[in-house]
Measured scan of single mutants.
Amino acid sequence: YWITCCPTCDVDINTWVPFYSTELNKPAMIYCSHGDGHWVHAQCMDLAERTLIHLSAGSNKYYCNEHVEIARALHTP
Rank of each mutant, 00 (worst) to 15 (best):
Tyr1Trp: 06
Trp2Pro: 04
Trp2Leu: 02
Trp2Ser: 05
Ile3Pro: 02
Ile3Ala: 10
Ile3Met: 10
Thr4Arg: 12
Thr4Asp: 11
Thr4Met: 06
Thr4Pro: 05
Thr4Glu: 10
Thr4Cys: 08
Cys6Ala: 15
Cys6Val: 09
Pro7Ser: 14
Thr8Asn: 14
Thr8Cys: 15
Cys9Pro: 00
Cys9Thr: 01
Asp10Gly: 11
Asp10Gln: 15
Asp10Val: 15
Val11Asp: 01
Val11Ala: 01
Asp12Glu: 14
Asp12Trp: 04
Asp12Cys: 00
Asp12Ser: 05
Asp12Gln: 07
Ile13Cys: 10
Ile13His: 08
Ile13Arg: 15
Asn14Asp: 15
Asn14Pro: 03
Thr15His: 13
Thr15Pro: 01
Trp16Ile: 08
Trp16Pro: 02
Trp16Gln: 00
Val17Thr: 03
Val17Gly: 01
Val17Cys: 15
Val17Arg: 11
Val17Trp: 08
Val17Leu: 10
Pro18Met: 02
Pro18Gly: 03
Pro18Phe: 02
Pro18Val: 01
Pro18Ile: 00
Phe19Arg: 07
Phe19Lys: 08
Phe19Asp: 15
Tyr20Trp: 06
Tyr20Thr: 01
Tyr20Gln: 02
Tyr20Pro: 03
Tyr20Glu: 02
Ser21Thr: 04
Ser21Gly: 08
Ser21Met: 04
Ser21Trp: 03
Ser21Pro: 12
Ser21Tyr: 11
Thr22Ala: 07
Thr22Val: 10
Thr22Cys: 08
Thr22His: 15
Glu23Met: 01
Leu24Thr: 09
Leu24His: 02
Leu24Glu: 15
Leu24Ala: 07
Leu24Lys: 14
Asn25Pro: 01
Asn25Gln: 15
Asn25Ala: 08
Asn25Cys: 04
Asn25Thr: 10
Lys26Glu: 08
Pro27His: 01
Pro27Phe: 02
Ala28Gly: 01
Ala28Lys: 08
Met29Cys: 02
Met29Arg: 14
Met29Gly: 03
Ile30Met: 05
Ile30Lys: 15
Tyr31Gly: 04
Tyr31Ile: 01
Tyr31Met: 12
Cys32Gln: 00
Cys32Met: 01
Cys32Asp: 00
Cys32Gly: 00
Cys32Val: 01
Ser33Glu: 13
Ser33Leu: 09
Ser33Gln: 09
His34Cys: 04
His34Ile: 05
Gly35Asn: 15
Gly35Asp: 08
Gly35Gln: 07
Asp36Val: 06
Asp36Trp: 05
Asp36Pro: 12
His38Ala: 00
Trp39Asp: 02
Trp39Ser: 06
Trp39Tyr: 13
Trp39Ile: 05
Val40His: 00
Val40Leu: 10
His41Asp: 01
His41Trp: 01
His41Leu: 04
His41Tyr: 01
Ala42Ile: 02
Cys44Arg: 00
Cys44Tyr: 00
Cys44Ser: 00
Cys44Gly: 00
Cys44Val: 00
Cys44Ala: 00
Cys44Phe: 00
Met45Asp: 06
Met45Arg: 01
Met45Gly: 03
Met45Lys: 06
Asp46Tyr: 08
Asp46Met: 14
Asp46Trp: 06
Asp46Asn: 13
Asp46His: 09
Asp46Arg: 13
Leu47Asn: 03
Ala48Phe: 07
Glu49Lys: 04
Glu49His: 10
Glu49Phe: 07
Arg50Gln: 11
Arg50Glu: 13
Arg50Ile: 14
Arg50Val: 14
Thr51Asp: 10
Thr51Tyr: 10
Thr51Ala: 11
Thr51Ile: 07
Thr51His: 12
Leu52Trp: 12
Leu52Val: 11
Ile53Ala: 15
Ile53Leu: 11
Ile53Val: 10
Ile53Trp: 08
Ile53Pro: 07
Ile53Thr: 12
His54Ser: 12
His54Arg: 10
His54Cys: 12
Leu55Ala: 08
Leu55Arg: 08
Leu55Pro: 05
Leu55Gly: 06
Leu55Gln: 13
Ser56Val: 12
Ser56Trp: 09
Ser56Ile: 08
Ser56Thr: 12
Ser56Cys: 09
Ala57Glu: 11
Ala57Ile: 15
Ala57Leu: 07
Ala57Asp: 13
Gly58Arg: 07
Gly58Tyr: 08
Gly58Cys: 10
Gly58Ala: 10
Ser59Arg: 08
Ser59Trp: 05
Ser59Pro: 14
Ser59Asn: 05
Asn60Cys: 06
Asn60Trp: 06
Asn60Val: 11
Asn60Ala: 12
Lys61Glu: 12
Tyr62Lys: 02
Tyr63Thr: 15
Tyr63Asn: 03
Tyr63Asp: 06
Tyr63Arg: 10
Tyr63Trp: 15
Tyr63Pro: 02
Tyr63Leu: 10
Tyr63Glu: 09
Tyr63Ala: 10
Tyr63His: 12
Cys64Ser: 01
Cys64Gln: 01
Cys64Leu: 00
Asn65Pro: 13
Asn65Gly: 13
Glu66Asn: 03
Glu66Arg: 08
Glu66Leu: 12
Glu66Tyr: 06
Glu66Lys: 09
Glu66Ile: 07
Glu66Cys: 13
Glu66Gly: 12
Glu66His: 05
His67Lys: 03
His67Ser: 06
Val68Tyr: 04
Val68Gly: 12
Val68Met: 09
Val68Trp: 09
Glu69Phe: 01
Glu69Ser: 14
Ile70Thr: 06
Ile70Trp: 07
Ile70Arg: 13
Ile70Gln: 11
Ala71Gln: 14
Ala71Glu: 14
Arg72Phe: 08
Arg72Glu: 10
Arg72Cys: 07
Arg72Asp: 13
Arg72Pro: 12
Ala73Ile: 10
Ala73Gly: 15
Ala73His: 15
Ala73Asp: 13
His75Met: 10
His75Gln: 14
His75Trp: 09
His75Phe: 09
His75Gly: 14
Thr76Gln: 12
Thr76Cys: 03
Thr76His: 07
Pro77Gly: 07
